[in-house]
Design a protein around this nucleic acid. Structure first.
Length: 99
DNA sequence: CTTCTGACA
DNA sequence: TGTCAGGA
C-alpha cells in the first residue's frame, strides 16, 4: 500500500509519550518509570530526555501486567522476560539450523 | 515532561 | 514490595 509503510510500521519505533502509553496499557505513569528503573523496559528517549514508547514496548508492558497479576515481583519478571527472549532466539536459531 | 520523596496495604 | 500522590 503505502511506499513508506516499512518505517511507519516498525514496532520498535517510539510513538507515544508516557501519558498516552500508560493510558493505553492501563497503568500509571509512575509505574512505567519504575519498571524502567528496575530494568524491565528501555523505551527510547528524545533528545530532550522524554520517553518514547514503541508498540513492542506496549506489548512488553502488558506482559509485565500479566506477570504481576500472577504474583511475580519485579525482579522475577525481569528474569522471566530475559528467559522468554532467550527462548525466542534459541527457537529461531534452531529453526534456521534445521533447514 | 523529568526525578525524588513519602505514605499505604 | 508495588502503587500512588505530591512537589521541585
Amino acid at each position: 500500500m503505502t511506499p513508506a509503510a516499512t518505517s511507519e510500521n516498525d514496532p520498535e519505533r517510539g510513538l507515544y509519550g508516557i501519558t498516552v502509553a500508560a493510558d493505553l496499557v492501563g497503568m500509571g505513569v509512575q509505574n512505567l518509570r519504575l519498571y524502567e528503573a528496575r530494568g524491565l523496559l528501555r523505551p527510547s528517549r528524545t533528545a530532550g530526555g522524554t520517553r518514547r514508547y514503541s508498540d513492542s514496548d506496549l506489548v512488553r508492558l502488558r506482559r509485565i501486567g500479566q506477570l504481576l497479576d500472577e504474583g511475580l515481583n519485579l525482579a522475577g519478571i525481569e528474569k522471566v522476560l530475559g528467559l522468554e527472549s532467550r527462548v525466542r532466539s534459541l527457537e529461531s536459531e534452531a529453526r534456521r539450523r534445521r533447514r
